[in-house]
Design a protein around this nucleic acid. Sequence first.
DNA 1: GCCGTTTTCGGCCCGACTGTTTTCAGTCG
Length: 595
Amino acid sequence: MDNLTLTRLLSETADLLEISGADSFRVRSYRRAADAAEQSTVDLASLANDPARLLEVPGIGKSMAANIKATVDTGSIPLRDELLAKYSAGILDLLKLPGMGPKTIALLWDAGVFLAPANTTLEPAEAAISSIDQLASAIDAGRLAGLPRMGEKQIEKLRRGIDEFRKSAGRFRIDEAEESAERVIQYLLAFPGIERVTPAGSLRRGRETCGDLDLLVTGPACEPGQTSAAIEYTAAFPGIRDIIAKGENKVSFYLANSLQVDVRLLPSRSYGAALQYFTGSKAHNVTLRQRALKVGYTLSEWALARLDDESVVASETEESIYAALGLDWMPPELRENLGEIDVAAQHKLPRLIEQSDIRGDVHMHTYATDGRNSIREMADAALARGYQYIAITDHSKNLAMTNGLNEERALEHIQHIREIDREMTGQIRVFPGIEVDILGDGELDLPDSVLAQMDVVIASIHTLFNQPREQMTERILRAIENPYVRILGHPTGRLLLRREPFALDLPSILRRAAELGVAVEHNAAPERLDLSDRDLRLAKELGCKISVNTDSHDTRHFDKIRYGIRQLRRAWLTPGDVLNTLGPDEFLAALRPHP
DNA sequence: GCCGTTTTCGGCCCGACTGTTTTCAGTCG
């Protein structure tokens, strides 16, 4: 039972409780426990028989500890099973529909919308329809009309929501969301009277995916009473597919790619409060507001104000709000309620790693294999970025598809790399390297005699990634035992939103890598970002060396480093935690020594 | 269901928008 499963079970229990009309604070405690499981770097299930340690986790009390134990023993939570027996599992999908909350589900449930239709002669495959499908057919059959709060518009909203759900269930990668945001921002800035547009929400916090886009807009056209022109202009953005809502201060719509965008117009005097509020995260804001209450203030998206006479204490900038609460300003990446507020109160926030700290990139390909540029072109592009070193790490022979290097070509390639390195003396170092493939049995596909010539040996899995978990784990553990391996490449193989990560026992791998001094790569490409912020925190806790690289196949790809950096920041990593902040000689010296 | 510098009981974050409810409930972030 991993934390992810536990998180799902706990939050499903919370959803079901809410539908059943349970006490909202009881629901909240299940959600808090789910959050705790999601964020924890320790496998909570492994502590099931150690209640004392479980109870140390904030949000876990006696009942939750018992629930966790039950999940280990039975694979589920008794309360969840009980509720699922009453409702059906598919009912949880309904919560994903816009406008559909627990109360409405309960209403529809009581009205019998989800009872199996009588007299069906459906084949079993067709009979197994989801609650969403049942809802759709209930709408079509007109069975919602006449129910309380179910007017024409409400029903139409549900119908649209179902279409939306079927078209794109899910989140958007941060780079895609960023690109969409940029288009809307450019459009908005063209309006006279709009001065500033700032993305808030998960995009500002640098999460790897975004569910929707929050854009905060300010300027003379956003002052109270003056907003109608700007609202109409916003609603006329040519990329809009459907308007969801249009009010005095807010327009919500779907873009053609189904990304939801919320544009909010704000008076400049509340800009800081709004930015703070809409940046979140929700958990961070809840804790912050509790803190405000304790000192006699109330915090909303409009201002931090005194409770007694409602006078405004701070509102124009985030800094002033945090300062009024005795806190240092916090980078958005830290605002996940993982202790940042306490640390900010002690004025001990770490100096997070920044893109400008990065002095080299040691994973990239050239047209010797599947890259698109030469060694020299890659080196020039890296130099133009201000890097002090790179490593050329083309593929090895097992990846025939990429024209991977065999022994002979690999040795030849090294000579070319060394030539370029000499040519560029005094400008940038170019290290010879290789991305060697880990075979199905954990062996590498090039002999040690070749690897011994390389400064940077990255071992990565490229094939057979569907092997069972134990086998995949064993395979990587064997590979990093090879004394020439200095970096474990894209360790989880995750391709965000396209493929599941490898099935792996990542903690065991990280632990062993730390023992051996093998660095673990954080692949910075947004479609990879293969170590989540939680994985990165674990890697740091275990004392792993971390190398952040772009795996560039093209000179233009170097810029992807920014996504990797944001993920590192979300994991509270400082320059000292990441090898690439070192200079060229120090970087090589920090890697596992050659035998 | 959790938690404690007022509390082992009695609290637990806040406001806007929507649709339909002529005064407010539900959803959302």
